[in-house]
Design a protein around this nucleic acid. Structure first.
Lengths: 230, 230
DNA sequence: GCCCCAGATCTGGCATATCAATTTAGTTAA
DNA sequence: TTAACTAAATTGATATGCCAGATCTGGGGC
């Protein structure tokens, strides 16, 4: 997942990003430049640069002269992330459905779908999540707007963190997801934009509803950004 | 537009961002940490931190041990930015149209619209662009997804840079924009999501088409990222 | 017991110095 | 003339030190 190469700062960035998304660094937790630096046997500088990048992607918040904190999970941000994903994927799916669509172009999508089914059979949660991401990424690729996928994905960190707090070992909603993906593929094959839109709508809407309940989980107490105290 | 407060690094960030968006620093231009630092009478550190943030928002590209360059204007990125704006604004407008919509909530939107008309009358290009941004921002606000606006806006730097290279002193498409905005307001007032979607579609589609021609401007030679040389 | 304030401590912000990779200029050989 | 090689200069990358502001702590006053 990480670039592998690059300077020390980038390796620190990858490390911290992973630790945050997998909630090994918990939301609200205080980080110390010096502490991280000495733990890794390097100086503060590359650590600081990594933290600046993380700050820029809203994964941490640097408070001057006070400390750097892992951002809390924000229900508002999650809701917005769903909104963004929904509308971008609808647009991408419509575009993909309307395109000339060489018959083989959907082959990759079907292949990913098969791998998803396989992951569900093997009950491999990690692979399932990965293949699921690949599936949606492929839709943007088909629409010729891969960059937009990056945008939608960036808005989705909170969802992944909430998921990882649950540490679900069984795959949730596996069969439904597979069924919904199959419907999306069918709509693309039929070159039916309206059907594709409906399929995406159902899929993302379901996701938002299901995961919305996740935020009421007791385990998230203190890890969630409260609505404005005004 | 800038925060006003904050440390030196943030003031450098605001300065450089403005210089880049207004193309006083031209696409492809090489920047030097040391040069900027001494010009501002500060050390390289805050300059570097600002550049890291700019790198994270794709306004510059830091090449290790080589140099930092203002990114070229990318037609691909611009097209994707239009795609993102189109679909997010359609979603937001539909949501705003469908909402309960207290009668006074649209008042702000009408007010901005009036200011836009005023700017067009006075032929104040800068104010026109500003009010235009406010207008679209307000739509996201009405939909309750202001964060999504930030996402859409971030993807739009290239458009603004291309605009500023033209340095148009007359307001382009002023009357059409005003007419299209009026139609959007009318659709929202009528609580008609389909009509709102159509209005946004027309507006953004028009924008993409008009500005698309802008990229063929001779003045942009060398400032645009060429399609993959493969 | 509670509140307030001063000093110690910790944090990030910035400056400075050194390093290594890269680019570039100069030079030499074909 | 040109191509290739070498060395100096430039750049970003990292380490380190110091500073100012924020936080924490503990003692004194109410």
């Amino acid at each position: 997942m990480d670039s592998g190469t690059g300077g020390v700062a980038f390796r620190v960035l990858d490390l911290l990003r992973d630790l945050i998304v997998t909630v090994q660094l918990r939301p609200g937790q205080r980080l110390s430049e010096l502490e991280i630096a000495s733990a890794l046997g390097i100086s503060k500088t590359p650590v600081r640069e990594a933290l600046i990048r993380l700050d820029e992607m809203d994964l941490v918040r640097i408070v001057p002269q006070s400390g750097t904190y892992v951002t809390l999970i924000s229900v508002q941000r999650y809701t917005t992330a769903c909104f963004i994903r929904l509308h971008l994927e609808v647009g991408a799916a419509r575009m993909a459905a309307a395109s000339a669509a060489p018959p083989h172009s959907l082959e990759k999508l079907r292949q990913i779908h098969d791998q998803l089914i396989d992951a569900e059979t093997r009950d491999d949660h990690s692979a399932f999540v990965s293949r699921d991401e690949d599936f949606h990424r492929e839709i943007f690729l088909l629409a010729g707007h891969l960059d937009a996928w990056v945008t939608g994905r960036r808005a989705q960190f909170d969802l992944n963190r909430a998921r990882n707090i649950r540490r679900e070992h069984r795959i949730p909603r596996g069969p439904e997801v597979i069924r919904q993906h199959a419907e999306i593929i069918a709509a693309l094959e039929a070159h039916d934009p309206d059907r594709a839109e409906a399929a995406i709508h159902a899929h993302i809407g379901d996701l938002e509803r299901q995961v919305g309940r996740l935020f009421t989980d007791n385990r998230l107490n203190g890890l969630i950004e409260l609505p404005k105290p005004n």
